[in-house]
Design a protein around this nucleic acid. Structure first.
Lengths: 116, 116
DNA sequence: TTATTGCGCAACCTTTTGGTTGCCTTATTA
DNA sequence: TAATAAGGCAACCAAAAGGTTGCGCAATAA
């Protein structure tokens, strides 16, 4: 499922940097139910100011992790899941590269113990 | 494959934060061939100082992404792939949660268009 | 129409981050 | 043994991050 449009691929470091903060990870969790939410609404439950939350949302937006929609005087944010997925793929790629070389090392070790 | 021991699970935000820098991502790439590498060796090719690289390595180490081994006067670093994998799982979990709610929304829309 | 609510902008502050340089110690190796 | 290569430690610096408060404006509710 998922993935429809979006091909704007933010650089991995920028995405990870945006994910590298507890407040922002919590904001993402709260947005996961799929319904777009306003800045004020998202501020509830945190004990930091609306402006602080706004700055975190800016980070997430610049990284392409969330997307704003203006509705009246409110600005509603929703998850842009493709961005999360692209960073997920980046990590999967790292793991698979590691496995390749790990397999090579294992083969070498086996060759040695068989004493060829 | 992969995963043997390690259960020290670094908090996700700390891991992502460590991944959120181009220099550190590049260091990880260079360590992916599986052979442990020293600070001086890893410094080659970057045009920043050894101490700067050392600080980046500290970040990665604190996040549990790399692991040092002391050999003579050298300190060799290698990837701790389980940490990467744990953050990868975190992202996969986000994607799957998103899909769940997206499916729910789709069902609602279908119900509406069928006009029940 | 008058409050009130949602937000944006900007100034300001402190801590963290990403770098630097200088100097000292400890293994190597010539 | 003397020179050299690998690194640790610490001081220092500028810029970025994560907050705050104050204020003004536009949309909504009384």
């Amino acid at each position: 499922m998922t993935a429809i449009l979006n091909n704007s691929s933010t650089p991995p470091a920028l995405i990870f940097s945006a994910l590298g903060d507890d407040t922002r990870l919590e904001l993402i969790q709260r947005l996961l139910d799929g319904t777009p939410k306003s800045v004020s609404y998202l501020t509830q439950g945190f004990n930091i100011s609306r402006q602080a939350i706004r700055k975190h949302l800016n980070h997430l937006e610049k990284a392409g992790i969330i997307r704003p929609t203006k509705v009246g005087r409110e600005q509603l944010f929703q998850i842009q899941i493709e961005t999360i997925e692209s960073s997920s793929k980046y990590l999967a790629e790292i793991s698979s590269q590691w496995d390749v070389h790990l397999n090579n090392l294992t083969e070498i070790l086996e060759d040695e113990t068989v004493d060829r």
